[in-house]
Protein backbone atom coordinates (compact mmCIF):
# COMPACT_ATOMS: atom_id res chain seq x y z
CA UNK A 1 0.00 0.00 0.00
CA UNK A 2 1.51 3.33 -1.04
CA UNK A 3 1.25 6.50 1.00
CA UNK A 4 0.34 9.87 -0.45
CA UNK A 5 3.15 11.20 -2.67
CA UNK A 6 4.20 13.77 -0.08
CA UNK A 7 4.86 11.19 2.59
CA UNK A 8 8.65 11.19 2.37
CA UNK A 9 8.61 14.94 3.04
CA UNK A 10 7.42 14.27 6.59
CA UNK A 11 8.36 17.51 8.36
CA UNK A 12 8.73 15.85 11.75
CA UNK A 13 11.48 13.69 10.26
CA UNK A 14 12.60 10.10 10.47
CA UNK A 15 12.89 10.03 14.25
CA UNK A 16 9.24 10.94 14.69
CA UNK A 17 8.23 8.32 12.15
CA UNK A 18 10.30 5.65 13.85
CA UNK A 19 8.71 6.45 17.23
CA UNK A 20 5.26 6.54 15.68
CA UNK A 21 5.70 3.19 13.97
CA UNK A 22 7.17 1.61 17.07
CA UNK A 23 4.01 2.55 18.99
CA UNK A 24 1.86 1.17 16.17
CA UNK A 25 3.81 -2.07 16.20
CA UNK A 26 3.41 -2.47 19.97
CA UNK A 27 -0.36 -2.20 19.55
CA UNK A 28 -0.31 -4.71 16.69
CA UNK A 29 1.72 -7.22 18.69
CA UNK A 30 -0.71 -6.99 21.61
CA UNK A 31 -3.56 -7.58 19.20
CA UNK A 32 -1.64 -10.57 17.85
CA UNK A 33 -1.73 -12.15 21.31
CA UNK A 34 -5.50 -11.61 21.41
CA UNK A 35 -5.54 -13.25 17.97
CA UNK A 36 -4.03 -16.35 19.56
CA UNK A 37 -6.88 -16.37 22.09
CA UNK A 38 -9.36 -15.98 19.29
CA UNK A 39 -7.88 -18.99 17.49
CA UNK A 40 -8.02 -21.11 20.66
CA UNK A 41 -11.58 -19.98 21.38
CA UNK A 42 -12.84 -20.57 17.82
CA UNK A 43 -11.19 -23.96 17.65
CA UNK A 44 -12.79 -24.95 20.97
CA UNK A 45 -16.17 -23.76 19.65
CA UNK A 46 -15.86 -26.22 16.78
CA UNK A 47 -14.65 -24.00 13.95
CA UNK A 48 -12.23 -25.74 11.61
CA UNK A 49 -8.87 -24.25 10.65
CA UNK A 50 -9.82 -22.87 7.20
CA UNK A 51 -12.88 -21.14 8.59
CA UNK A 52 -10.87 -19.54 11.41
CA UNK A 53 -8.19 -18.32 9.00
CA UNK A 54 -10.68 -16.96 6.46
CA UNK A 55 -12.70 -15.26 9.18
CA UNK A 56 -9.69 -13.45 10.66
CA UNK A 57 -8.51 -12.37 7.22
CA UNK A 58 -11.83 -11.17 5.86
CA UNK A 59 -14.01 -10.16 8.80
CA UNK A 60 -11.02 -8.56 10.57
CA UNK A 61 -12.89 -7.02 13.48
CA UNK A 62 -11.79 -8.71 16.68
CA UNK A 63 -14.75 -7.99 18.93
CA UNK A 64 -17.22 -9.09 16.24
CA UNK A 65 -15.36 -12.32 15.61
CA UNK A 66 -15.39 -13.16 19.31
CA UNK A 67 -19.11 -12.38 19.44
CA UNK A 68 -19.93 -14.55 16.42
CA UNK A 69 -17.93 -17.50 17.70
CA UNK A 70 -19.34 -17.04 21.19
CA UNK A 71 -22.93 -17.19 19.95
CA UNK A 72 -22.22 -20.33 17.92
CA UNK A 73 -20.47 -21.85 20.95
CA UNK A 74 -23.58 -21.19 23.07
CA UNK A 75 -25.65 -23.04 20.50
CA UNK A 76 -27.06 -19.91 18.85
CA UNK A 77 -28.11 -19.78 15.21
CA UNK A 78 -25.95 -18.46 12.38
CA UNK A 79 -28.29 -15.51 12.07
CA UNK A 80 -27.91 -14.61 15.74
CA UNK A 81 -24.14 -14.90 15.43
CA UNK A 82 -24.03 -12.58 12.43
CA UNK A 83 -26.47 -10.16 14.08
CA UNK A 84 -24.50 -9.69 17.27
CA UNK A 85 -21.23 -9.51 15.37
CA UNK A 86 -22.50 -6.82 13.01
CA UNK A 87 -23.87 -4.85 15.94
CA UNK A 88 -20.34 -4.69 17.31
CA UNK A 89 -18.96 -3.86 13.85
CA UNK A 90 -21.31 -0.89 13.46
CA UNK A 91 -18.90 1.37 15.31
CA UNK A 92 -16.42 0.88 12.47
CA UNK A 93 -18.87 2.84 10.30
CA UNK A 94 -18.63 5.67 12.83
CA UNK A 95 -14.85 5.66 12.55
CA UNK A 96 -15.23 6.33 8.81
CA UNK A 97 -16.06 10.03 9.16
CA UNK A 98 -13.15 10.38 11.59
CA UNK A 99 -10.45 8.90 9.38
CA UNK A 100 -11.72 9.50 5.85
CA UNK A 101 -9.75 12.75 5.42
CA UNK A 102 -6.53 10.83 5.96
CA UNK A 103 -7.28 8.07 3.47
CA UNK A 104 -6.19 8.14 -0.19
CA UNK A 105 -8.50 10.08 -2.49
CA UNK A 106 -8.70 7.63 -5.40
CA UNK A 107 -11.54 5.13 -5.00
CA UNK A 108 -9.69 1.80 -5.23
CA UNK A 109 -7.01 2.45 -2.56
CA UNK A 110 -9.74 4.01 -0.43
CA UNK A 111 -11.86 0.88 -0.68
CA UNK A 112 -8.79 -1.17 0.22
CA UNK A 113 -8.03 1.03 3.21
CA UNK A 114 -11.65 0.70 4.38
CA UNK A 115 -10.99 -2.92 5.35
CA UNK A 116 -8.54 -1.63 7.97
CA UNK A 117 -10.89 0.86 9.62
CA UNK A 118 -11.08 -0.57 13.15
CA UNK A 119 -10.61 0.64 16.74
CA UNK A 120 -6.82 0.51 16.81
CA UNK A 121 -6.05 1.96 13.37
CA UNK A 122 -8.47 4.86 13.92
CA UNK A 123 -7.01 5.54 17.35
CA UNK A 124 -3.39 5.50 16.16
CA UNK A 125 -4.25 7.67 13.14
CA UNK A 126 -6.12 10.41 15.00
CA UNK A 127 -3.46 10.51 17.71
CA UNK A 128 -1.06 11.98 15.14
CA UNK A 129 -0.57 15.73 14.75
CA UNK A 130 -1.35 15.97 11.03
CA UNK A 131 -3.07 14.24 8.15
CA UNK A 132 0.10 12.82 6.61
CA UNK A 133 1.49 11.21 9.74
CA UNK A 134 -2.08 10.10 10.51
CA UNK A 135 -2.19 8.18 7.24
CA UNK A 136 1.25 6.72 7.97
CA UNK A 137 0.07 5.51 11.40
CA UNK A 138 -3.17 4.23 9.87
CA UNK A 139 -1.69 2.05 7.16
CA UNK A 140 1.28 0.90 9.22
CA UNK A 141 -0.96 -0.17 12.11
CA UNK A 142 -3.45 -1.65 9.65
CA UNK A 143 -0.95 -3.84 7.84
CA UNK A 144 1.06 -4.98 10.87
CA UNK A 145 -2.08 -5.56 12.92
CA UNK A 146 -3.67 -7.59 10.12
CA UNK A 147 -0.56 -9.77 9.92
CA UNK A 148 -0.32 -10.19 13.72
CA UNK A 149 -4.04 -10.87 14.09
CA UNK A 150 -3.96 -13.55 11.39
CA UNK A 151 -0.73 -15.19 12.52
CA UNK A 152 -2.10 -15.12 16.06
CA UNK A 153 -5.41 -16.74 15.22
CA UNK A 154 -3.65 -19.34 13.08
CA UNK A 155 -1.27 -20.17 15.94
CA UNK A 156 -4.15 -20.31 18.42
CA UNK A 157 -6.19 -22.60 16.19
CA UNK A 158 -3.24 -24.94 15.68
CA UNK A 159 -1.91 -24.95 19.24
CA UNK A 160 -5.36 -25.00 20.81
CA UNK A 161 -5.62 -25.18 24.56
CA UNK A 162 -1.87 -25.57 25.13
CA UNK A 163 -1.66 -21.85 25.89
CA UNK A 164 -2.99 -20.37 29.08
CA UNK A 165 -5.59 -17.63 29.05
CA UNK A 166 -4.51 -14.06 28.34
CA UNK A 167 -6.24 -12.95 31.55
CA UNK A 168 -3.39 -14.59 33.46
CA UNK A 169 -1.04 -12.09 31.83
CA UNK A 170 -3.34 -9.14 32.38
CA UNK A 171 -3.76 -8.60 28.66
CA UNK A 172 -7.41 -7.65 29.14
CA UNK A 173 -6.19 -4.55 31.02
CA UNK A 174 -3.74 -3.63 28.25
CA UNK A 175 -6.40 -2.69 25.72
CA UNK A 176 -8.35 -0.18 27.79
CA UNK A 177 -4.96 1.26 28.86
CA UNK A 178 -3.94 1.66 25.20
CA UNK A 179 -7.14 3.56 24.53
CA UNK A 180 -6.55 5.77 27.58
CA UNK A 181 -3.24 6.74 26.00
CA UNK A 182 -4.93 7.40 22.67
CA UNK A 183 -7.80 9.31 24.27
CA UNK A 184 -5.38 11.75 25.89
CA UNK A 185 -5.03 13.99 22.83
CA UNK A 186 -8.81 14.31 22.52
CA UNK A 187 -9.52 15.59 26.02
CA UNK A 188 -7.37 18.70 25.85
CA UNK A 189 -10.44 20.84 25.19
CA UNK A 190 -13.36 21.37 27.55
CA UNK A 191 -15.74 20.03 24.90
CA UNK A 192 -13.57 16.93 24.49
CA UNK A 193 -13.56 16.31 28.23
CA UNK A 194 -17.33 16.73 28.45
CA UNK A 195 -17.75 14.32 25.51
CA UNK A 196 -15.48 11.71 27.12
CA UNK A 197 -17.08 11.89 30.56
CA UNK A 198 -20.63 11.84 29.20
CA UNK A 199 -19.79 8.94 26.87
CA UNK A 200 -18.30 6.94 29.74
CA UNK A 201 -21.42 7.56 31.84
CA UNK A 202 -23.80 6.59 29.03
CA UNK A 203 -21.84 3.44 28.17
CA UNK A 204 -21.56 2.35 31.80
CA UNK A 205 -25.26 2.96 32.36
CA UNK A 206 -26.20 1.00 29.26
CA UNK A 207 -24.04 -2.09 29.85
CA UNK A 208 -26.45 -3.96 32.19
CA UNK A 209 -29.47 -3.26 29.97
CA UNK A 210 -28.31 -3.80 26.40
CA UNK A 211 -26.64 -6.29 24.08
CA UNK A 212 -22.89 -5.93 23.64
CA UNK A 213 -22.04 -3.28 21.09
CA UNK A 214 -25.05 -1.12 21.96
CA UNK A 215 -23.46 0.83 24.86
CA UNK A 216 -20.71 2.18 22.59
CA UNK A 217 -23.24 3.23 19.95
CA UNK A 218 -25.49 4.90 22.55
CA UNK A 219 -22.47 6.82 23.82
CA UNK A 220 -22.52 8.85 20.58
CA UNK A 221 -25.30 10.92 22.18
CA UNK A 222 -22.58 12.30 24.47
CA UNK A 223 -21.71 14.72 21.66
CA UNK A 224 -24.88 16.67 22.53
CA UNK A 225 -23.65 18.14 25.84
CA UNK A 226 -20.18 18.52 24.32
CA UNK A 227 -21.51 20.48 21.34
CA UNK A 228 -23.51 22.63 23.75
CA UNK A 229 -20.38 23.37 25.76
CA UNK A 230 -18.47 24.22 22.61
CA UNK A 231 -21.31 26.44 21.40
CA UNK A 232 -21.58 28.19 24.75
CA UNK A 233 -17.85 28.80 25.15
CA UNK A 234 -16.57 29.03 21.56
CA UNK A 235 -13.22 30.48 22.64
CA UNK A 236 -12.23 27.01 23.84
CA UNK A 237 -9.36 26.11 21.52
CA UNK A 238 -9.73 22.97 19.46
CA UNK A 239 -7.21 20.21 18.90
CA UNK A 240 -5.62 19.59 15.53
CA UNK A 241 -8.37 17.26 14.39
CA UNK A 242 -10.91 19.91 15.28
CA UNK A 243 -9.11 22.46 13.13
CA UNK A 244 -8.88 20.07 10.23
CA UNK A 245 -12.40 18.73 10.13
CA UNK A 246 -14.64 20.95 12.20
CA UNK A 247 -12.76 24.19 11.64
CA UNK A 248 -15.56 26.72 11.39
CA UNK A 249 -15.45 30.30 12.59
Amino acid sequence: MAGPPTENMDPAGDGARRRRRRDCLVVSLAVGVIGVTFGVFAEAAGFDLPRIVVMSALVFTGASQFAAVGVVDDGGTGGAAVGSALLLATRNALYGPVVRKMLPDSPLPRLGAAHFVIDETTAMAVAQPDRRSGWDAFWFTGVTLWICWNLGSLAGAVLGGVLSTPETWGLDAAFPAIFVALLATHVRTVAGRVAAVAAAAVALGAVPFSASGIPILLAVFAVIPALYVRHRWPSDSEGLLGNESGGRP
Binding site: R91, L183, R193, I216, A219, V220, A222
Partner: peptide, 13 residues
Protein backbone atom coordinates in the same frame (compact mmCIF):
# COMPACT_ATOMS: atom_id res chain seq x y z
CA UNK B 1 -16.81 14.59 13.86
CA UNK B 2 -13.95 16.02 15.88
CA UNK B 3 -15.72 14.89 19.07
CA UNK B 4 -16.28 11.32 17.91
CA UNK B 5 -12.85 9.97 18.91
CA UNK B 6 -13.29 11.25 22.47
CA UNK B 7 -16.75 9.70 22.66
CA UNK B 8 -15.98 6.34 21.08
CA UNK B 9 -12.64 5.76 22.81
CA UNK B 10 -14.01 6.78 26.19
CA UNK B 11 -16.98 4.41 25.83
CA UNK B 12 -14.64 1.67 24.65
CA UNK B 13 -12.39 2.18 27.69
Amino acid sequence: VSLLPAVLFSALI
